[in-house]
Amino acid sequence: MGLRLDVLSISKSYSGKAVLKDCSLSFDKAGVYVLMGQNGTGKSTFLRICSLLENPDSGEVNYLSGDNILIKDIGLRRRITLVLPKVGLFNTTVFNNAAYGMKIRGIKGRELKERIDSALNFVGLLHKKSQNALTLSSGEAQRLGIARALAIEPEILFLDEPTASVDEENTRIIEDIILNMKKERRSIIIITTHDGVQAGRLSDRLLLLDKGWIVER
């Protein structure tokens, strides 16, 4: 049974300033959800709460399989992942970075190598796999972040502003990567962006975050 995400009237404020107000949403079908909004409107906060990095002040984030609400344990956390705008690459090779998620799950040997090679190939970084990851450009770093997330085959993938600090060429490459994932329709992908044109290009469902409220377009 596929994994679904239900967000029930969550609110969050930072030092008295309300960032999210009573937001409710359901993510239940494979495809690309794009959450659009100006900078500083709380998109990233929403994503961090959904990906269980932070708790909301009120409301609930529930992951469901069938009709069962799942416990938020490491088992569930390992079925979802979030790629941050600042990817946080480890000071080692591109390959080892991409392999991190699988290694901590105890996967090694040929399966590891094949899956990493295919993930790196998917984002066009296979030829750089032996290079130190800290030498990558910001666009390549973002692509590696996506490959690292894809390698663990998440059922729900969150991408927070994947093209925010990336040049035009890499933006195009990253959009292509997302469109390819969309075609495969294997998982729920939730992306934030402040770029309306990009949102239109990528989304199956377009959501707008404005003044703390989420509305569907």
Partner: peptide, 29 residues
């Protein structure tokens, strides 16, 4: 060590112990 390292390993499904190992590894030099 950059806090994004800790977050990256957390989002990739690391246990608290694995997160600590990742951070220490990152500070090896």
């Amino acid at each position: 060590v950059d806090r994004n390292i800790r977050l990256a390993s957390q989002t990739l499904g690391a246990t608290p112990f694995q997160i600590s190992v990742a951070v220490i590894k990152e500070s090896r030099y």
